[in-house]
Write a protein that binds this DNA or RNA. Structure first.
Length: 303
DNA sequence: AATTAGTCCAACCGCGATAAG
DNA sequence: ACTTATCGCGGTTGGACTAAT
């Protein structure tokens, strides 16, 4: 029995694989080895085809702003179902999406690490008393990374906002699904999985949204004793978590989909500031540094 | 210029689901 | 109904590349 080859693929091997697929279609992967065409496992052949050789792949192309947004929202909805998410993204594989997401998680983890108060470093003056009228988001344990939104209770569905925060024991975060749901966006209807055909056109899935995307306020303000005049806290500020009690971060709640008010001081403030809650609102929960294309919210006069 | 740290990405592994015998 | 083979998915790893020091 011949040895199984591993490691990087050579161009000749790719050619053999492509020929095989042309002849038999993308199936019978294990027969490639049993016929002696390649010393690769069927698994390896399939992976190579799906991730690199398949037609219409966007190899070497960075994720666009639109793709970033798609991943963010679909991850919030589906959890780490990368294959499923990839079906909404022409030219992208589950591996692409997975790699993209994990790199953003690392980026965020770094941001949070850099932002965390240093043990020996004098702390900034932080407003630690809960403002009287503020409703706290229930504290949740950060779910394990491989958890899936589909398999979790609703309240635990904020994968993307909490799963990368394993460094913290508990974190109060906006439940992403609530935020997404609060917009009453029928995701399953709006984002149709794409079927790949040889000559498929690039399908834009976003124009169907009633609102433009993304709309991150240039300066997301949070309650602070100094007031936002002195402290225009921006999420991209690497020290932004210093403004919070790290163990008990308070973030805005979006209105529930039933329309009932879920007041939080911040949410109210946002209303006052005339920032409507959009389908994109949940992206407020991310530091801007985490993504490449999160643009500032245009001023209301520009709408 | 050399070294280090950070990022990206291709490929592997393990596991569960499903099909075939 | 049971066993085995195959496939597909998600998690992880390691090397290549780039930026920072």
């Amino acid at each position: 029995m011949s040895e199984i080859k591993k490691g990087p693929w050579k161009a000749e091997e790719d050619e053999v694989l492509i020929k095989h697929v042309k002849k038999y279609g993308p199936r019978d992967w294990s027969s490639i080895r049993s016929k002696g065409l390649l010393q690769r496992t069927g698994k390896s052949c399939r992976l190579r085809w799906v991730n690199k050789l398949r037609p219409n792949l966007k190899n070497g192309v960075k994720f666009s702003a639109e793709e970033e947004r798609t991943v963010i929202e679909l991850q919030a909805q589906f959890g780490n179902k990368w294959a499923r998410i990839a079906t909404y993204m022409p030219g992208r594989t589950d591996n692409d999406v997975k790699n993209f997401w994990s790199s953003r998680q690392k980026r965020l983890a770094k941001i949070l690490r850099n932002s965390a108060p240093q043990p020996n470093k004098p702390q900034k003056s932080i407003h630690r008393e809960a403002p009287p009228a503020t409703q706290k988001v229930p504290s949740v344990e950060a779910p394990k990374l491989n958890s899936s939104a589909e398999e979790r209770p609703l309240s635990m569905s904020q994968d993307c906002s909490s799963s990368y925060m394993n460094n913290f024991e508990t974190t109060n975060m906006v439940p992403l699904r609530e935020l997404v749901n609060s917009t009453s966006l029928p995701f399953e209807q709006e984002l149709l999985p794409l079927e790949f055909t040889p000559n498929e056109k690039r399908i834009s899935i976003w124009p169907q949204f009633p609102l433009s995307f993304p709309q991150i306020p240039l300066q997301t303000t949070f309650d602070h004793p100094l007031g936002h005049q002195e402290l225009p806290m921006k999420l991209e500020d690497t020290n932004f978590l210093d403004y919070f009690d790290m163990g008990n971060v308070q973030v805005p709640l979006a209105p529930s989909c039933s329309g009932q008010e879920r007041t939080s001081e911040i949410a109210v403030k946002r209303e006052i500031m005339d920032y409507p809650l959009t389908p994109d609102s949940f992206i407020h929960d991310f530091p801007m540094d985490m993504f490449d294309y999160i643009d500032p919210l245009p001023s209301p006069s520009e709408w």
